[in-house]
Design a protein around this nucleic acid. Structure first.
Length: 290
DNA sequence: ATGACCTGTGTAACAGGA
């Protein structure tokens, strides 16, 4: 716990991480090691690739609880799947979108909760596959529904939306923009969909904290690298894992960092954790944390 | 130029990823 110098306002460090783990079963060892090493307060997971039943079973929820976390999850089958772990309180959980969710909108891609004075959303956008694939149109409508859900949220709580948005917002977020010009993740409608989210009053905090890759002016930093040989080593990646926060949260951001060391490890996810370190007014936080 | 890999599933090729 820290106090601000002049302002006498009690501030508390809150670490939030978003991480597409590409299967919680395949990644559980790495996830537990990461939690132990970095002690995040709020963990937004995507692509857990497991059912609620498996997440509730021995070795997952009980293990996180033993580390001090409350747990909320949303998974229907062996695809997609999102979850939130929090050791600063976890209430008002919402799964999926408001209203009817006929297939494919019943896929487990969204979970929200209130944690430590933040309304956090863990989201996993559809991939899109190809520009002429029906899945691409689904992706665009899915973003409209996400925008509607954020706009309709009446919690009044400062908002932090993070996850795998499967869109590189600008050409600077792609190692080789020309190569991706006619592919999903870079198309103008997808970028417009992310811009529409941001237009709700959100800030892409990674871009603010890291205007450029330290070694590649005008490029990166990235959060995803293909598993194919040489891609990570050559830093041929995309920035598709984003953290979008409203103005109240933006003013509390102390640091944003991408854990490339985790991506470099053996049996790693193809996505790196993206960490947002905040200093929140203590009054905004849920009571009960020792 | 293209593909290379990883995870899950009816454990053998596939679907899906990005």
């Amino acid at each position: 716990m820290r106090t601000a110098g002049g302002a006498r306002t009690m501030l508390t460090a809150v670490r939030v991480v978003t991480w597409n783990v590409n299967s919680i079963r395949a990644r559980q060892g790495r996830v537990l090691a990461w939690l132990t090493r970095h002690r995040p307060d709020v963990v937004l997971l995507q692509e857990t690739k497991c059912t609620d039943a498996l997440f509730a079973s021995e070795g997952y929820t009980d293990t996180y609880e033993a580390l001090g976390y409350e747990v909320a999850y949303h998974g229907r089958d062996h695809w997609n799947g999102v979850a939130i772990l929090s050791r600063v309180g976890l209430t008002d959980v919402a799964r999926g979108f408001p209203g009817t969710n006929r297939p494919p909108y019943d896929e487990a891609r969204v979970i929200a909760a209130t944690c430590g004075g933040l309304r956090v959303w863990s989201v996993y956008a559809p991939n899109g596959r190809e520009l002429d694939d029906p899945h691409y149109l689904y992706k665009l409508v899915w973003f409209e529904r996400l925008r509607g859900a954020i706009a309709a949220d009446r919690s009044g709580t400062p908002t932090l939306l993070a996850g795998d948005l499967n869109v590189a917002p600008t050409d600077a977020d792609i190692y080789d923009p020309a190569r991706w010009r006619r592919r999903t993740h870079a198309s103008p409608p997808e970028r417009a969909a992310v811009e529409a989210l941001i237009d709700l009053g959100l800030v892409d905090v990674t871009r603010v904290a890291h205007p450029h890759h330290p070694d590649r002016p005008g490029r990166g930093p990235f959060t995803w690298w293909s598993y194919r040989p040489g891609q990570f080593a050559a830093d041929r990646g995309l920035r598709i894992d984003l953290a979008l926060v409203d103005a109240r949260v933006a003013s509390s951001v102390r640091d944003v960092w991408i854990d490339r060391d985790e991506r470099a490890a053996g049996v790693a996810s193809d996505h790196a954790p993206v960490v947002v370190d905040l200093s929140l007014p203590a009054a905004d936080r849920a009571p009960g944390r020792g």
